[in-house]
């Protein structure tokens, strides 16, 4: 499947920000399941972008603005060709021991209720346990837009039994780690099969580590393993560590942010039309 992504984030500042620094994890890398084509980052003011790769294997751009500005738009566009790997991740550079993904973070601490919930998953093969965990979260935590913010911890979302994909993923991670299985957060995009192209926010899911198989994706918000409809962008210990943009401004005062995201499938004939158009 060829997925076209157009992801625009706009920042507004109450006062002109003299200087903005942002860390962007917006660029997917090619794996055996996805091949990235013509990926671009654009901004509407003069910026310097420095590309690097972090220890988690993410492609990171550090953005610096050059002149005072009261707004900033960061837009990424590109196309990714995907195949279904049954959720198994292959072809990523893995610099870190999976054991690193057993540590909890402030956002992914399991409280007593979650520990009890994780204990109910029971014993068995790790892969089965992860599937059972995904099913259990999908059943017991309702998907509800607006029920949480990005600062909600896994435990807070779990207590109210509702959240968005970020919360489902973080609850999954917290429980899996409690069960002794390394788990990590993934931010990315989902092509919706119901035909909805304009989305409010990017998608998020989790990956669990299974000896001999490696990292396996689990999307507890949807109760399935990632398919060719998924584009994997960044990973980390939690939502904060893999967030698409982390930034600060000097002197900008209060900051507002709006996101416009379009994820759509490129049809074979569309591509042909485009090619004809170019020729």
């Amino acid at each position: 499947m060829r997925i076209r992504i157009d992801h625009e984030t706009r920042y507004g500042y109450a006062r002109a920000a003299r200087f903005i620094v942002q860390s962007l994890r917006l660029t997917p890398r090619s794996t055996e399941g996805q091949q990235v084509r013509d990926w671009r980052i654009e901004t509407d003011v003069d910026t310097r972008l420095r590309r690097s790769e972090d220890a988690f294997g993410n492609i990171v751009h550090t953005l610096y603005t050059e002149r005072p500005t009261d707004s900033l738009m960061v837009r990424v566009t590109g196309e990714v060709a995907t195949v279904n790997t049954g959720g198994v991740l292959k072809g990523t550079p893995e610099r870190l021991s999976p054991l690193v993904f057993l540590r909890s973070t402030p956002l992914t601490q399991a409280d007593a209720d979650m520990r009890a919930f994780a204990a109910e998953i029971g014993e068995g093969q790790p892969l089965d346990r992860l599937h059972r965990l995904m099913g259990a979260i999908n059943e017991s935590v309702a998907f509800m837009v607006g029920s949480t913010t990005v600062d909600h911890t896994a435990a807070e979302a779990f207590a109210q039994k509702q959240g968005v994909c970020q919360d489902h993923a973080q609850i999954f991670i917290a429980c899996a780690r409690r069960m002794g299985i390394p788990a990590r957060y993934v931010s990315g995009h989902l092509h919706r099969s119901d035909g909805v192209i304009n989305q409010d926010a990017a998608h998020a899911w989790a990956e669990g580590w299974v000896e001999d198989l490696g990292w396996i994706g689990f999307d507890p918000a949807n109760g399935i393993c990632p398919t060719e409809h998924y584009v994997r962008v960044a990973t980390g210990l939690d939502a904060l560590g893999s967030s698409p943009i982390r930034g600060t401004s000097y002197g900008g005062g209060r900051e507002t942010m709006t996101v416009a995201l379009r994820v759509r499938q490129m049809q074979q004939n569309q591509q042909q039309q485009q090619r004809q158009g170019w020729s």
């Binding site: 972090d54 220890a55 988690f56 610099r95 021991s97 054991l99 690193v100 540590r103 210990l237």
Partner: peptide, 14 residues
């Protein structure tokens, strides 16, 4: 080492 909060994954390979 790896579950130690003072081990910084960011530094791996640096």
């Amino acid at each position: 080492i790896f579950t130690n909060p003072h081990y910084r994954p960011e530094m791996q390979g640096r």
